[in-house]
């Protein structure tokens, strides 16, 4: 095993241990389960009220909400992963030893995935319990959704890590994440609003602005990890294999690009406590 992989493995182990003994992971899992509990409850109410409910994969909808919560946790956790260590000075100490920028970024990324998997295991255990208690049952699409969610978590983590590599303070990272998330959601709403307008109703200048905005949003579609999350959810809901694979590959490519960017940003910004 190369020295770099030894470093990556050791850091993952440390980080995983830290997550395991911390409360964040369990709070995120609980939130994910709690949110999905509302969906399960609505199913029960529907069946009780209508005496019948027809659904292809009833666990997918609650899973989607659980994945949104877990992926947001991953984004927040990764967006503070480097800035927290920079803030505390521990990142600098790591670099005294046989650790380089790539190994730190990869280790943090894989640890995020490990944490996400732990959350998914806890969520799945809860789903198993609920599925047995209510007799809702499992379908293979649940497995597909979980597999896809790992790729989505990857894109979320790489995005968070990139933000984290840019900043040296936990507060700045979180603020930046909230700002970007808010901005992306705002643009998404604007886009949806624009789609309802017809060129005939607009002045020439508005049409021009719409055109620019539309192109910006097209780029954002590929630049925002949240669009992979939403597209992934749609892919499983639609049962579209091509969309599923396309989204998986897209999220994977996005992850690679963002991780590379994170390595260079970390080199540029440095690892020292300010």
């Amino acid at each position: 095993m190369s020295y770099r992989w030894v470093a990556i493995k050791s850091i993952i182990k440390r980080e995983a241990r830290s997550s395991f003994f911390g409360l964040g992971l369990y709070i995120a899992s609980t939130l994910a389960c709690f949110v999905s509990a509302f969906i399960f409850n609505s199913y029960i109410n529907t069946v009780e009220g209508n005496n019948i409910m027809v659904m292809a994969s009833p666990l997918n909808m609650p899973l989607f909400y659980a994945v949104i919560v877990s992926a947001l946790y991953t984004a927040i956790s990764s967006s503070t992963a480097l800035s927290r260590e920079k803030d505390k000075g521990t990142l600098e100490v790591l670099f005294y030893g046989p650790v380089d920028h790539l190994s730190v970024i990869l280790a943090k990324f894989f640890e995020d995935i490990v944490s996400f998997l732990i959350i998914m295991v806890l969520v799945t255990l809860y789903f198993v319990y609920t599925a047995i208690v209510t007799n809702l049952g499992f379908s293979i699409s649940y497995l597909y959704a979980v597999i896809l969610s790992i790729f989505i978590a990857g894109s979320m983590s790489s995005f968070g890590l990139w933000l984290s590599s840019l900043t040296a303070r936990i507060r700045t990272s979180v603020l930046l994440l909230i700002l970007i998330m808010g901005g992306l959601l705002g643009l998404q709403f604007l886009h949806n609003y624009i789609l309802t307008l017809k060129p005939e109703n607009l002045s020439l200048s508005m049409v021009y602005i719409m055109g620019i905005l539309s192109n910006v949003l097209r780029i954002i579609r590929w630049a925002s990890p949240f669009s992979y999350l939403m597209n992934g959810i749609n892919a499983v809901a639609l049962g579209s294999t091509s969309m599923y694979i396309e989204n998986m590959l897209g999220a994977f490519a996005y992850t690679i690009v963002l991780l590379t960017l994170s390595v260079y940003t970390l080199k540029w910004k440095g690892v020292r406590k300010l």
């Binding site: 509990a37 806890l122 809860y126 319990y129 609920t130 208690v133």
Partner: peptide
């Protein structure tokens, strides 16, 4: 029961 079970991870 479903809501209480969701607190298990915590």
């Amino acid at each position: 029961n479903i809501f209480i079970a969701s607190l298990a991870p915590l």
